[in-house]
Write a protein that binds this DNA or RNA. Structure first.
Length: 239
DNA sequence: CCCTGATTCGC
DNA sequence: GCGAATCAGG
C-alpha cells in the first residue's frame, strides 16, 4: 500500500483527532502501526502524549543508548505552565468503543444550565459567565475574563427501587433470596420470568423439601445401581 | 503480558 | 520515503 493523498488525509485527521496509531492502521488497512507512526512523524504530525516521552527527567541517565546519540534537545524544559490550549476543540473521537448514540435522553437545550434542578435558585444572570457563543457539542464559550462557575454539587437524590417486571411480580427474585427460602431456580437466567422457588426451605438445606428431592438422591447399594438410560442429544429440559 | 508513541536505520 | 525492529513508559 502506498500513501495516497486520501490515506494521508485520513491519517492526519485521525491522528489529530486522537486516534491511536493502531486504530489508524487498522482503519487504513494494509499498513502497520509502525508505518502509521513513521508516516505521522515524517508529516511532522507528532506532539501527542507519548507514554514514553511524557516523563522527561532532566538528568535521568540514559544508559541504554546503543544506537546513535541523538542531538541534544532543547534546553531543560521550563516548568510546564498550564498552556492555553483552549483553541483546541474537543476533536472528534475515533475511539473504538464510542457508540455515538444517545437513545432516549432529550437533547439538552443549549444556553441552559443542564444540571440545574428546578428547586435550585438559578444564579442571577449577572453571576453567570457571559455566554459569547455556543461551541460544538453545545458547550458554552465564555468571554476572556469570565471564569467557570463552580459546578454546584448534585442535589441528593432519592433512590427508588426499580419496578420489577410484571412477569416476576410476587415471585422470588435474586434479591429476595435468603437462607430461609428455597433457591431452586425456576426457568433460566435471562428469561423474563426467571425467578426462584421461594418456598420455605427444608431446614439445613438450601431448597424446599420438594426440591431437595430433586437435588439430592439417596446413595443406592452397589447392586441396585443401574446405568442411566442414554439421553437423546441435548436431553429434555429438566424443570 | 498487553498497550502506547519515539527512534533508528537498512532498504 | 518507507516501515520493521527496537526502545521505553504505562
Amino acid at each position: 500500500m502506498s500513501w495516497t493523498d486520501e490515506r494521508i488525509e485520513k491519517l492526519t485527521k485521525m491522528w489529530e483527532g486522537g486516534a491511536t496509531a493502531s486504530q489508524i492502521a487498522e482503519e487504513l488497512g494494509g499498513v502497520s502501526r509502525n508505518a502509521v507512526i513513521g508516516k505521522a512523524h515524517r508529516l511532522d504530525l507528532k506532539a501527542r502524549p507519548s507514554p514514553v516521552k511524557a516523563n522527561d527527567k532532566p538528568a535521568a541517565a540514559r544508559p541504554a543508548a546503543p544506537k546513535k546519540v541523538k542531538p541534544v534537545e532543547a534546553a531543560p524544559t521550563p516548568p510546564r505552565a498550564p498552556e492555553p490550549q483552549a483553541e483546541t476543540p474537543p476533536a472528534p473521537s475515533f475511539q473504538r468503543a464510542a457508540p455515538p448514540v444517545a437513545p432516549e435522553s432529550p437533547a439538552p437545550r443549549a444556553a441552559e444550565p443542564v444540571a440545574a434542578p428546578a428547586s435550585d435558585t438559578p444564579a442571577p444572570v449577572s453571576d453567570r459567565p457571559r455566554v459569547v457563543s455556543v461551541g460544538p457539542g453545545g458547550f458554552l464559550r465564555q468571554g476572556p475574563g469570565d471564569q467557570q462557575q463552580p459546578i454546584p454539587p448534585a442535589p441528593p437524590r432519592r433512590l427508588i427501587p426499580a419496578k420489577p417486571s410484571a412477569e416476576i411480580a410476587g415471585k422470588t427474585s435474586l434479591l429476595d433470596l435468603n437462607d430461609r427460602v428455597c433457591r431452586w431456580p425456576m426457568g433460566h437466567p435471562g428469561e423474563p420470568d426467571f425467578h426462584f422457588c421461594g418456598d420455605k426451605v427444608n431446614p439445613g438445606f438450601p431448597y424446599c423439601v420438594d426440591h431437595c428431592g430433586r437435588a439430592y438422591q439417596a446413595q443406592l447399594p452397589r447392586g441396585a445401581r443401574r446405568a442411566p438410560p442414554p439421553l437423546p442429544f441435548g436431553g429434555p429440559r429438566v424443570r
